[in-house]
Design a protein around this nucleic acid. Structure first.
Lengths: 199, 199
DNA sequence: CGAGTCGTTGAACGGAATCAATCGTCGTGG
DNA sequence: CCACGACGATTGATTCCGTTCAACGACTCG
């Protein structure tokens, strides 16, 4: 699912980023702040949330380890949301100017970034489409078919995280997984799920 | 939600695309075909689906009017999914080489594309995050807060399409909307929804 | 050896999907 | 001009299934 090199990695190699540590609740940036940087999560988790006029808060995104966020800083002068650490986190900050300079001066890098973003779009679309599947069992099966390579899914993350990615309560996920196995559609080993053909 | 200029528009203006008509069920391209073009939907709808080894089909994305698809052609030599018209559709095909040439020779355009993709990523993330909200009412409210400008949401598409975007049955959506109005949280006029402040 | 987390199963509840029916509106053609 | 059909919007009743609460075993780590 995740591709070879992430945007975060590419940026980190190309323009050096400044690493900072944040505790739970710390603000990385605030809505209205000048958008001078974009960011990556090295460890931890950051919540992006927007404050509405009436003071309500709308969660826009949760960025986990390895992900970049606030790329939209490239588009705007000020941030349109707050970024707050949801866990103790190490964040990398890249200067917006540096990034833009890089993209302008190095067409190869620019192209690489385009490809990265394009594949990210593809992945997000696929994830979104998954959510349109109502039945938990079908959703899981489709997910497995999507991420499988040669009929085998290697589990890199704990199962509960997979459940979260699928938008399911972990209990439902475990149960349904057991159901699929009982139905003879999959077989599980320790860190792998094998998809058994049954056209 | 949708931004000023779409990727489709930018491409259409920069590299001329070839327009083709498709009937329901027609294949735009097939899994394994050389990936020589990327595409945009002018009218109609296209389903992107991947065939697995066992002949099962997994839906990856449904591209509607105004959207581009198969941008991933830029990354790969062959298509990894089938594209089939879900309605009578007019599709624009852009030559991959032309697009790559453009991006390499025109850094300004490349930058514009990067910005477009970045904002697309942001939008997709936001949509995905919405799906993590279980309660239909909360989901709708968050959506409204997200797309509102000055507390007003202008309906561009039929309500039933909004319901689909939110991943809700249209009945549920209507009902919940009525509920929100009864609860005094929103007020509806013909083509607008007003969000009433209530911290 | 305890605390914490992941994985797993059971039982009950609640809410969204689904089926069904109605109304309004718009466009089309006779 | 009106009848007709298509589609969006809406409300009611019922079913179903995923969430939630709860409890437990396995494993890791300090």
């Amino acid at each position: 699912m995740t591709d070879d090199a992430s945007l975060l990695e590419v940026l980190d190699r190309s323009v050096g980023g400044e690493r900072r540590e944040y505790d739970v609740g710390d603000l990385v940036f605030r809505q209205g702040d000048p958008a001078t940087h974009l960011y990556g999560v090295e460890t931890g988790q950051v919540r992006l949330e927007r404050s509405t006029v009436e003071g309500r808060r709308v969660l826009m995104y949760v960025a986990g380890a390895g992900e970049s966020f606030a790329e939209a800083a490239l588009l705007h002068d000020v941030f349109h949301c707050n970024a707050v650490a949801a866990e103790t986190s190490r964040i990398i900050a890249f200067r917006k100017d540096s990034v833009l300079d890089l993209l302008r001066s190095d067409p190869g890098r620019a192209e690489q970034v385009i490809l990265l973003l394009a594949s990210q779009v593809r992945e997000l679309r696929a994830r979104l489409e998954l959510r349109n599947i109502l039945s938990a069992g079908d959703r899981i099966l489709h997910y497995l078919l999507l991420v499988a390579e040669d009929g085998v899914v290697a589990l890199r993350t704990p199962l509960k995280d997979v459940a979260a990615e699928l938008g399911l309560a972990r209990e439902t996920f475990y149960r349904e997984l057991a159901g699929l196995e009982k139905a003879g559609l999959i077989r599980r080993t320790d860190r792998e799920i094998h998809i058994l053909s049954s056209g």
